[in-house]
């Protein structure tokens, strides 16, 4: 219940300050516009569109998801949170907030790609949605942990994508592969190994986050 209270506090704060929502929305629009301008009248292959889709998601996540902890640090309210809740409550509250943001962000990107890219055709929708769900969870889990680590650093903006890239790379590569399978219409049973990689990634990152957060949060 206290986890939900952390989420509610963050969500109400976000609706008033629009720290993350504005950053995410602007980044998505700008990136997709740049892709559309650079592609022009060229025919883009389906698989390349699938790859670009995850590139947009990766960089959008980098622009907005660190706000969960960075905004607390910038406002000086980190101490307030430390004084009112256990570290695990804060971690899961912030994770839940980032999960909601990532899902909203990814669904918006899917809709925009569907409307703006002719070659964005998914033949196996259930495989794509399953990949999107597991991938979004993985992005939210790892972004939350990395945001907590970089929040106290002076060079937050630079450090976040630099630290995130090697951690998110295996996830993004697997997601690109699964999107290719979904575009080709492959069955879920044929993509079992890749889906298990995503499940393992999500579980490992969530467990590592839970175990490490106490140390990151305290000193």
């Amino acid at each position: 219940m206290t986890i939900i209270s952390v989420f509610k506090k963050d969500w109400q704060s976000e609706l008033r300050t629009r720290y993350a929502i504005n950053a995410l929305a602007m980044f998505i629009l700008v990136t997709i516009s740049v892709i559309l301008f650079s592609v022009g009248q060229e025919k883009v292959s389906e698989h390349l569109t699938g790859g670009l889709f995850w590139v947009v998601i990766f960089f959008s996540a980098m622009s907005g998801l660190s706000r969960a902890f960075v905004s607390e640090e910038e406002r000086g309210t980190t101490l307030t949170l430390q004084l009112i809740a256990a570290p695990s409550t804060i971690y899961f509250g912030k994770l839940f907030f980032n999960l909601v943001l990532v899902f909203i962000m990814n669904i918006s990107i899917v809709i925009l790609f569907y409307l703006l890219f002719e070659s964005y055709i998914i033949l196996n929708v259930s495989l794509f949605l399953l990949s999107l769900f597991l991938g979004s969870t993985g992005i939210a889990v790892s972004s939350t942990l990395i945001a907590a680590i970089i929040a106290k650093a002076n060079t937050k903006g630079t450090l976040y994508p630099v630290l995130s890239f090697p951690i998110l790379l295996p996830l993004i590569l697997t997601l690109m592969e699964l999107t290719k399978f979904a575009m080709d219409g492959d069955l879920i049973s044929d993509s079992y190994a890749e889906l298990m990689v995503l499940v393992s990634y999500d579980v490992i990152m969530a467990t590592a986050g839970y175990m490490l957060f106490d140390f990151i949060w305290k000193d």
């Binding site: 206290t2 209270s5 952390v6 506090k9 406002r75 307030t80 009112i84 809740a85």
Partner: peptide, 28 residues
């Protein structure tokens, strides 16, 4: 415990009462 210090900050985007409500609920 209760804590007061110059380096403690509450949430400026909330009203006084909203701050107290959120803080109580996060405390459980």
């Amino acid at each position: 415990m209760g804590f007061v210090s110059p380096y403690l900050f509450l949430y400026n985007e909330f009203t006084a009462e909203e701050n107290l409500i959120h803080i109580s609920k996060i405390r459980g």
